[in-house]
Amino acid sequence: MSKRIDVKDLDIYYGDFQAVRGVGMTIEPRSVTAFIGPSGCGKSTFLRTLNRMHEVIPGARVEGEVLIDGQNLYGRDVDPVDVRRQVGMVFQRPNPFPTMSIKENVLAGLRLNARRLSGRAADELAERALRGANLWNEVKDRLDKPGSGLSGGQQQRLCIARAIAIQPEVILMDEPCSALDPISTLAIEDLINELKSDYTVVIVTHNMQQAARVSDRTGFFNLKETGQPGELVEYDSTQTIFNNPRQKATEDYISGRFG
């Protein structure tokens, strides 16, 4: 259920402005890959191009290739809707649908994919997804209550349950803990560790310790100066990036000298 991602020479533009230049990398299946870097360096923008969510922003476009198990996401006859069913996403702030109950939230993606579900099958799928997101025990008695009544950390795990319910190949997380307290953050990090046995996980984080804790490989993004496009400076095993990075800029960033 997890796939390998190859990015080849990717440029990202917002209208005439180039936001990211020349990114190339390979993301291994069943691993956690973290992107770190100062604000505005394009790491979130790049993450969004992995499931074509950047297209939501008017004027955003991409040149280059993103291959998921050899299939180009930007091929001529590829529907972004299909891409997003394969590559799920969790956002910075928890965003359960406010008009839906906890269970409806989990099943929202399945219902979209127009699959008819019997009551029992729906219950089982919801339970499996909620267990997968380490949330089942906390919500099993109130599945019909609104998702917005949960704590921030629970809501974020609900969003993860919603993402894994449609059984994607890849899960993208855009700073999933930035709105959460340390204990909820820990719960999400534990969950990320478990998710990688089934999924390819890519996470953007502002928290370098978090990258060091959860990821197998780390990519450091940076820009030379404001107004210049962001670039992938260094991409290696997390151990190498944090212990003996090859680039001076990486070392400066992780040792807290800037950013």
Partner: peptide, 9 residues
């Protein structure tokens, strides 16, 4: 919320 729906396909 719009992005949540879009990201689910």
């Amino acid at each position: 919320h719009e992005e949540a729906a879009l990201a689910l396909g």
